[in-house]
């Protein structure tokens, strides 16, 4: 009971008053919900959080067309394949790191039609017709994106494993206009875990990139 109680405030924040104060958090929440309607689970019932354990006739390949970092891909996917694994294993985009199997850590965050999504909460088949940006696609003409540059300037990464997801979550937060002050940044990034930095320099970097003090 105690564990559940302790975790709860964070989730409540993300789903109640933060809905209005932090539109970015809403989008993440909506996407989380959108990946788990009944229609999806009919394709792949939730026996396993990774969606890996199920085979059989539901597993027939499906044709999916998606655009990743500006390149159109046509893929034959098993319905159970998570977007995170499609990016890593089918497309070789290993910048999208996987850090957990419960959609908790946010390391695999990508942009889907410009909004941040944990790519382990979405099936590859759901990306049909959508535009995905991964960390590999964020720099322009070889120049780091301002958020990437700010992470470098402010020493906002150490081991770098959470960094791609953290950067993309921050990009989305800033573009949504939700990185308005330190507290908003902290709440807006609560879905992305870092074990190295204590978040201090991440928050500084995001504030600098967002132009807030």
């Amino acid at each position: 009971m105690e564990r559940a109680r302790a975790r709860q405030p964070r989730k409540v924040v993300a789903q109640s008053h933060e809905l209005e104060a932090h539109p970015q958090a809403v989008r993440v929440t909506v996407w989380l919900c959108a990946t788990r309607p009944d229609s999806v689970w009919k394709l792949s019932p939730p026996r396993d959080t990774l969606g890996l354990a199920l085979r059989g006739e539901e597993g027939a390949l499906r044709h999916v067309a998606l655009t990743v970092n500006g390149v159109r891909h046509e893929l034959e996917l098993e319905p159970r394949e998570l977007l995170a694994y499609v990016l890593r294993e089918r497309l070789g985009l290993t910048g999208t790191n996987i850090g957990c199997d419960t959609s908790s850590c946010g390391a695999c965050t990508v942009l889907v039609n410009g909004e941040s999504v944990k790519s382990c909460t979405m099936l590859g088949v759901q990306a049909d017709g959508l535009e995905i940006t991964t960390i590999e696609g964020l720099a322009r003409d070889g120049e780091l994106h301002p958020v990437q540059q700010a992470f470098h300037e402010h020493h906002a990464l150490q081991c770098g494993y959470c960094t791609p997801g953290m950067v993309l979550a921050a990009v989305s937060l800033i573009e949504a206009g939700a990185a308005t002050d330190e507290q908003a940044i902290r709440l807006g990034l609560e879905g992305n875990l870092c074990r190295c930095t204590g978040y201090h320099n991440i928050v500084k970097a995001v504030a600098a990139a967002a132009g807030v003090s």
Partner: peptide, 12 residues
């Protein structure tokens, strides 16, 4: 160390 990690080119 940052450049590779920030661009998603870590060799994990």
């Amino acid at each position: 160390e940052d450049e590779a990690l920030l661009r998603g080119r870590g060799s994990f």
